[in-house]
Write a protein that binds this DNA or RNA. Structure first.
Lengths: 223, 223
DNA sequence: TATAATTAGTGTTGACTATACAATAACTAT
DNA sequence: ATAGTTATTGTATAGTCAACACTAATTATA
């Protein structure tokens, strides 16, 4: 591919904000940088997007390689977020980053430099990755408000308390138990199963399942 | 800027979906292509994004040059939409396009090849620009539902009928007059002025103004 | 100067939704 | 049997949504 003008494209990169909820805490996957720039800081998994490669494919390749996370199998919800393009965001030169958000559960990372951090106690971040994470978190809150996307954080069968905990972890605030249950059940996104969950010296909880693991918009939203 | 690997970036382009509402019709600005590919088809204003240039700056430069529309002064609301990146979207080679949506009113275009088209009677479109316009329209509907972004389509002072017409043009359906007025006034985004608007053989209408021309989120939404 | 034509402006009711709030049920460990 | 822990459930009040039709103010014209 050639141009008659001396056109030079900016570098194109992709970055992923990978969320999971563990023990009632919303977490983000980060990698400790082993090289300059920002050596020692933590960064989102990301890298260069070559010509002929979609951003999704680049992301798949990069996260697989750098964190052993497979975005197609480990993540149950993936969405493109925003493209960050300020000229000085990478000290090495103009790099435009197409960012994605992904959600999963019980994600195992083998790389010793990769680690999940609670959203409210993030370490020193490289580049503009703090802004990217904040943007992703806002979007995630919005998504959970008007879609069934929570399914991505939960096992196939789950209790209503787990469901509520997940919402609370993402929203960063507590919800009323009775109102939450009434409302969520009225949305008809989940159904009861005949299984119960026993977990300690207390009443066992009914297990529920989502009717569909596909993204659906709600008729009305939370909050 | 150099890489030690033989990295080649895709071409980076920007495209803008520029909306206005005229005579109760939502319109999109298009350019008739004078060159291959897609010669004779209509396309969104757009072009190459060079290294060292933000996507916003590229858009500003390109729309100014190709359509004489100045996105900073002619448009009262501009937002980045989505980045389209499929490998075959441009027959000349892999081009990743960062797309924007912009809204204004009474936009004058000098270029004889540039023209506004009603959203529901678009001509033959180049590239994937049909999908981009559809995406932008969806987003615009959502924005008007939960923000005060309509202000971008209206003059400083306007009647409630004009306001309702604008919503109807964007939503593509009629709204109940009494409910619309009640609800919109209850949002406290606009205030009455002491002026009225006379326009034909009928009762004159009160003119209103927005309290703020900055984007604000609504406490509750339409629809 | 009355009448027709046209758009502006206004309220009520019933259904549904949101919020605030506390007691009982079911299980395990001691 | 009792204590401890989590699960489960209902009501009342306020607020919001959706459906629906007439009067007010102006101009043109008969």
């Amino acid at each position: 591919m050639q141009y008659n003008s001396p056109y030079v494209a900016p570098t194109l990169t992709v970055d992923a904000v990978i969320f999971q909820v563990t023990d009632g805490v919303l977490q983000v996957l980060l990698l400790n940088r082993q090289n300059e720039p920002f050596k020692g800081s933590w960064a989102l998994p990301g890298g260069y997007n070559a010509q002929g490669e979609t951003t999704h494919a680049a992301l798949q390749r990069i996260t697989q390689q750098k964190t052993s996370v497979n975005i197609d199998t480990d993540l149950r919800y993936v969405e493109q977020l925003y493209t960050f393009d300020t000229v000085d965001r990478d000290p090495r030169g103009h790099a435009v980053s197409v960012t994605y958000m992904g959600c999963g559960r019980d994600i195992s990372v083998n790389d010793p430099h990769a680690q999940f951090f609670a959203i409210d106690s993030l370490p020193n971040l490289a580049y503009d990755h703090g802004s990217i994470i904040a943007y992703a978190h806002d979007r995630l809150i919005a998504k959970l408000n008007y879609t069934n996307a929570v399914y991505a954080f939960l096992p196939k069968r789950f209790t209503l308390s787990q469901l509520q905990n997940t919402y609370e972890a993402v929203f960063g605030r507590e919800l009323d138990k009775r109102n939450f249950r009434k409302k969520f059940l009225s949305l008809e996104l989940i159904h009861e199963t005949d299984e119960t969950w026993r977990d300690g010296a207390h009443r066992p909880a009914k297990l529920y399942e989502f009717n569909s693991q596909k993204l659906e918009s709600l008729s009305r939203s939370f909050d």
